[in-house]
Simulated scan of single mutants.
Amino acid sequence: MKVNQNDHSYIPGDIVYVFYRNPHTQDVANVQAAAVVNHPDNPNELAIFLYETYYPLTNDMAIYQSEADAMQAYGQYFGYE
């Protein structure tokens, strides 16, 4: 299955980059690599697999195809340009 999100197509096995907030320190966020996978509860949907958790792949997610793009966006959002 292929999903289009923000003008990009994703297939299971793709590696993408997302912002991840530390659950213990909410004011800390990092860029983290994650895998695109079939959602285990619904094989017709794709998910992001990050730290042993599945997150549905939706248009609401900020997903970057390269670490450089993610770091640039991170700098813009968090003021570290």
Rank of each mutant, 00 (worst) to 15 (best):
V18F: 00
Q76A: 05
A73G: 01
V18D: 02
G75M: 05
Y55D: 02
H8C: 12
V36A: 04
N42W: 00
N4F: 14
N44F: 03
L57G: 07
A34M: 02
E52G: 09
T25W: 13
Y51T: 08
L46Q: 09
M1D: 06
F19P: 03
K2L: 09
Q72C: 02
S9D: 14
N44T: 08
M1Y: 04
E81Q: 12
P40R: 08
Q5H: 13
Y54F: 14
S9C: 12
Q32L: 09
H39N: 12
V28G: 00
Q72R: 08
Q26R: 07
H39G: 01
Q32S: 10
V37K: 10
H39Y: 10
Y55K: 10
E67W: 00
H8N: 14
Q32C: 08
G79K: 07
V16M: 08
Y55M: 11
Q76R: 13
Y55S: 05
Q65L: 09
D69Y: 00
Q65K: 14
N38G: 00
D14G: 06
P40Q: 02
F19D: 01
P12T: 12
V16R: 02
N42D: 15
A68F: 08
P56T: 07
Y74H: 08
I48C: 06
I15P: 01
D41T: 05
A47H: 08
N59T: 12
D60W: 01
N42M: 04
I63M: 05
N30G: 04
V31Y: 04
Y77M: 05
A47K: 06
N22H: 13
Q72A: 11
I15H: 14
L46F: 04
E81F: 09
F19Q: 03
A33M: 04
S66P: 03
Y80W: 04
E52K: 15
A34V: 04
E52V: 10
D27C: 07
A68E: 14
I11F: 07
V28I: 15
I15S: 13
F78A: 11
I11T: 15
F78Y: 15
T53V: 13
E67I: 03
L50M: 14
E67M: 07
N4A: 12
H8G: 01
Y10I: 08
R21T: 10
T53Y: 08
Y80K: 09
H24E: 15
Y10D: 02
Q76I: 06
